[in-house]
């Protein structure tokens, strides 16, 4: 139920490092940070999920919304560092086929 977001920026590239859980409680916080970044044309938004132990479908919904926004606003969204468990939900829902997800999956978060 806790989510920490560390943000770094170099010009138009924004890197978000997430730690904790993305669920119904923490999803609004992530949306507040991530969505506006995708709304500007030319922005590159990289989200590192290696610190995420758990994500539920509400969390996934935030990424779906961010994906749609980046397509509509011509920005780019990349995800990386997912654990097996998190990658699985992206795979089952078919999002790995339509999103830019870096493979090189790290081990299960301890």
């Amino acid at each position: 139920m806790n989510l920490q977001i560390n943000q770094d920026q170099i010009n138009e590239t924004y890197e978000l490092n997430l730690t904790g859980e993305v669920d119904a409680y923490t999803a609004p916080k992530l949306k507040e940070v991530m969505l506006p970044l995708t709304e500007k044309e030319g922005n590159i938004v990289i989200v590192d999920l290696s610190g995420i132990e758990y994500m539920d479908s509400t969390g996934l919904g935030i990424f779906v919304g961010a994906l749609k926004s980046s397509k509509a606003n011509h920005s780019s969204l990349k995800l990386r560092g997912m654990t097996e468990r998190v990658k699985r939900i992206f795979e089952i829902t078919g999002l790995t086929e339509v999103m830019d997800i870096e493979s090189g999956v790290k081990g299960e978060a301890l």
Binding site: V64, K68, T93, G94, L95, E97, V98
Partner: peptide, 9 residues
């Protein structure tokens, strides 16, 4: 049965 969730595209 692979496929993208409904409502994305």
């Amino acid at each position: 049965a692979k496929g993208l969730v409904l409502g994305v595209s």
